[in-house]
């Protein structure tokens, strides 16, 4: 018996647009994953605490507010402090090209931006979890 991939999807900060993250949640559900959705306006601390308690494979952060260069470093730092750096972090939403490299450098595994087809999101997560291996 194997377990479905567990994903926490989070909307962080002042960003009220959750249509996209809901579509992603539905896509992952239909691909057989367990998706925990936190709701809107979470803080980085709340998200990291939740990810640890839920022991998720993947933490997906949805950002359309432009605050990714403020929020992502905080989340990566907190994960490290809590000894949860084996959590795979992906970012979805709207991110300008020039921010992609710095985000990856701080440990974000993949960016799934606004024109990513649903099956590619599924494939990317499946591959990242397979690469990480069992834990």
């Amino acid at each position: 018996m194997s377990s479905p991939i567990r994903v926490l999807l989070a909307k962080v900060g002042l960003d009220g647009h959750d249509r996209g993250v809901k579509v992603v949640a539905r896509t992952l559900r239909d691909a057989g994953m367990d998706v925990i959705y936190t709701g809107l306006h979470r803080t980085p601390e709340e998200v990291v605490y939740s990810a640890i308690q839920e022991d998720v494979d993947v933490l997906g952060i949805s950002l359309l507010s432009g605050a990714h260069m403020t929020i992502c470093p905080k989340i990566m730092k907190l994960l490290k402090e809590q000894g949860a750096e084996d959590t795979i972090v992906v970012v979805g939403g709207v991110v300008p090209d020039e921010d992609v490299a710095p985000l990856k450098e701080m440990g974000v595994k993949e960016l799934l931006l606004q024109d990513t087809p649903p099956n590619q999101i599924v494939e990317t997560l499946e591959n990242l979890v397979a690469e990480r291996g069992p834990r």
């Binding site: 479905p4 559900r29 239909d30 057989g32 979470r42 601390e45 605490y49 939740s50």
Partner: peptide, 20 residues
């Protein structure tokens, strides 16, 4: 889901004030 086996778990949404 009875079809895909996946799920959307939303109970945390109403418990966010307890998260930390």
């Amino acid at each position: 889901s009875p079809f895909s086996g996946g799920s959307i778990l939303g109970d945390r949404i109403r418990m966010s004030n307890l998260a930390m």
